[in-house]
Each structure stands twice: as C-alpha cells, then as structure tokens.
C-alpha cells in the first residue's frame, strides 16, 4: 500500500507544473553602460497563470517583478515604481512563448515587445521586440516539468538581459 501511495505521489507531484519565478528571471551578470537619473514606471502585459495540469507559464506579476528587481539590482534608474507618477514608463508585453511538448533537451523561445516612453513629451526612447531562447537539459533537472520551467525562466532571463542592455546603452 505504501508503495502504491509513493508511486501515486511521485506521479502527481512530478506532473504538477509551477510557474516561472521572478527571482529566476533576474539576469545575474548584466553590464550596465549608462545609469539614468530618472524614475521609471514598469508595466507588463501578456503573461499567463500556470494551472497545475498545464505547462509552466510566465505570469505578468512575476515578469514585472523580475524587471523591477533587475532594474533595482543594477541601479539603472533613480527610482523604479509599479504605480504612481514617474519621468519614464517602461512597458513590456509577452507576445509569444514557444514550448515543446516533451524532450530531453527542452528549448523554450520567448518574444516580447518593449517600449520606453518619456512621459514629459510622449517620445518613445525605445520600441523594439526581443526574441530569446534557452535550453535546459537533463543535467539541469530530471523531471520534465522542472526542465520546462527552467528553460522558460532561462529564456525570460535572457530576454530581460537583452532588453535592459539595450536600454542602458542609450543616453537620455
């Protein structure tokens, strides 16, 4: 009976998907070219909640938290807010998240659109799409659902890195 319960528990827990976590989407080694002495408002759209029987997804609040944490960690702006009045607005939308159904090496591709607007005159400082991929292998995780989550978080992390690198490279 114990064995049957164990098998069931392993199958059940092993099959449950968990969503991408913001802390795992923060780039670890971002080289910041310019620090902007302004405040910025961060808004995110297009995320999706993860259901227990579905695949690992990126929710808007987690993606937003990852962007806010990244901007704060690297001190790219004077202040980073999610509500209120600021000098600039940074919008990001998750437009595509391609995930395989199964596989040993799991590659996830993400496409996002980013726009940084100067709220003083409505001028777009940057308006660009970024496409990134990340592969998680069996060396990263044995369970398929965990491997998919790691690949999803990795793709999002690379995506945030590229977008913030672009933003930090612009002088304004």
């Amino acid at each position: 009976m114990k064995a049957a319960f164990l098998v069931f528990a392993v199958l059940f827990v092993g099959g449950c998907a968990s969503g991408a976590a913001s802390r795992n989407m923060v780039p670890k080694d971002l080289a910041v070219a310019n620090i902007h002495p302004y405040s910025v408002l961060v808004k995110v759209d297009g995320g999706r909640e993860t259901s227990a029987v579905g695949t690992s997804q990126i929710s808007s609040p987690e993606f937003q938290a990852a962007i806010v944490d990244s901007l704060t960690t690297y001190g790219m702006f004077k202040a980073v807010l999610t509500e209120g009045i600021t000098d600039y607005k940074l919008e990001a939308a998750i437009l595509n998240l391609q995930q395989p159904l199964f596989g040993f090496d799991v590659t996830v591709t993400i496409e996002t659109a980013w726009k940084l607007t100067d709220l003083k005159d409505g001028r777009a400082v940057i308006s660009e799409n970024f496409i990134n991929s990340y592969t998680a292998t069996t060396g990263d995780a044995f369970a398929g659902v965990t491997r998919l989550r790691l690949a999803t978080e990795g793709a999002a992390r690379e995506n945030i890195r590229d977008a913030l690198k672009k933003i930090s490279g612009i002088k304004f």
Partner: peptide, 24 residues
Amino acid sequence: VCCALLVAQGCSVNRATATMAPGA
C-alpha cells in the same frame, strides 16, 4: 476520485486573450 478531479479540471479550461505590443 483523484483521477476524476484531474480529468474534470482538464475539461473545463476556457481561455480567450489578446495582447498588443506597447504602442502598436
């Protein structure tokens, strides 16, 4: 019961969304 719950969960998922790129 557990299997039935899982199957029932899978049968009731409905989603219809649209997302625009900022400024599009």
